[in-house]
Amino acid sequence: MTSLSSRLKGRSELGVAALLGAVGAFVLFDAVRLVVPYSQSDPVGPKALPVIVGALLLVCAVMLAVNVVRGGHADAEAGEDVDLSHPSDWKTVLPLALAFIANILLIDWAGWVISGTVLFWGSVWALGSRHYVRDGLISLALALLTFYGFYLGLGIALPAGLLEGIL
């Protein structure tokens, strides 16, 4: 077990190969499930492309796995604000994802103004800002502005939710 885990260490890219394989297998499985009578007007049918795509993904999965086991690895994407010298900072990413999920759960029930405020305020906090009051005011202003901007400017009514009647 130890030898296996030591061999797998630093090879998290195998997870990508596994994902590609899983998606490929699913695409193939889904394609096989389709039943189509042969039709003169559509000799290709809906199956052909999924089969090709599924096969492509499976081949990529296998080749990537081989490549990674042999020591190949890809470089992470660089950028202006990206500092690759430290490992992934989950203490930032997870709260950020939570703010995003909170918005999904709240948007239809509490309305965009509340959920958008939560989203922006939570994201800013997750990313390291600690000006609670200022951030809160900016969040609320943004949410209100976009709500009215979309309603008055574009005729798109974002959900008002709990504040129905007040807004």
Binding site: N103, I104, I107, W112, F120, L127, G128, L142
Partner: peptide, 28 residues
């Protein structure tokens, strides 16, 4: 400030994606 920039990107991404069909499922 970077917190505002990236929070803003997420905020407008959510808004843009949601306003296509107005359904929370798109956000998932």
């Amino acid at each position: 400030p970077r917190p505002y920039l990236y929070a803003g990107i997420l905020f407008f991404a959510t808004l843009g994606a949601y306003s296509v069909n107005l359904q929370a499922f798109d956000l998932v």
